[in-house]
Computed example of a mutant assay.
Amino acid sequence: MTKRTAACSCGQLHLACNGEPVRISICHCLECQKRTGSIFGAQARYPREQVTIEGDSSQWTRRGDSGESATFHFCPTCGATVYWEPNAMPGFVSVAVGAFADPDFPPPYVSVYEERVHPWALALGELPLERHF
């Protein structure tokens, strides 16, 4: 069985996720943009019984673009959001894909709130090669 570990930047708050996620998605909603500081959020959803959580977290509940709320758990030391619990999906935990720090993590196969996509966002295959200045 696959076991993946996600953690905050300082490592104090970390999760062990057993098995494969039931969904991997990117969200373009405005709230995810504000939460991540990026143009979308990437998340992996796991059944709660497949996730072991260790460390302290601060929590904040907010309403998303859907009108539903979720409780976000972030490290009180470094501030990184590691996971959240959507109130509309009890029994599931969403984990920030970036918290796995794993370039081999499976890609998303669902994209939501695409009406909020930034017009300048490019598909990965269309990005120019990196140039060093």
Rank of each mutant, 00 (worst) to 15 (best):
M89E: 04
F72H: 10
G91P: 03
E85I: 11
F72Q: 01
G91N: 03
A70S: 14
P90I: 10
E68Q: 14
Q59E: 11
F72T: 06
A80N: 09
S94Y: 09
G79D: 03
N87G: 07
R45G: 13
A96E: 12
C75M: 05
G55K: 04
P76G: 02
W60H: 06
E68P: 15
V97G: 02
F92V: 01
C78H: 07
H73F: 05
F74C: 00
V51M: 05
T52W: 15
A42Y: 02
M89F: 08
W60Q: 04
T81M: 10
A88V: 10
E85C: 05
T71R: 05
F92I: 13
T81N: 15
P86E: 09
W84N: 00
V93K: 02
Y83L: 03
R45A: 14
S57N: 04
S58D: 13
A88F: 02
R63Y: 08
S69A: 08
W84D: 01
R45M: 14
G91C: 05
P90L: 09
S57E: 05
E54V: 07
D56Y: 06
T81P: 09
W60Y: 10
H73E: 03
T71V: 08
W60S: 11
Q59D: 14
D56K: 13
Q59W: 07
S69Q: 15
G67L: 00
D56M: 13
S69E: 10
T81R: 07
Y83D: 04
P90V: 09
V51R: 02
V93A: 08
V97L: 10
R45L: 14
N87R: 12
F74K: 01
R48C: 09
Q50Y: 05
E68L: 15
A80V: 10
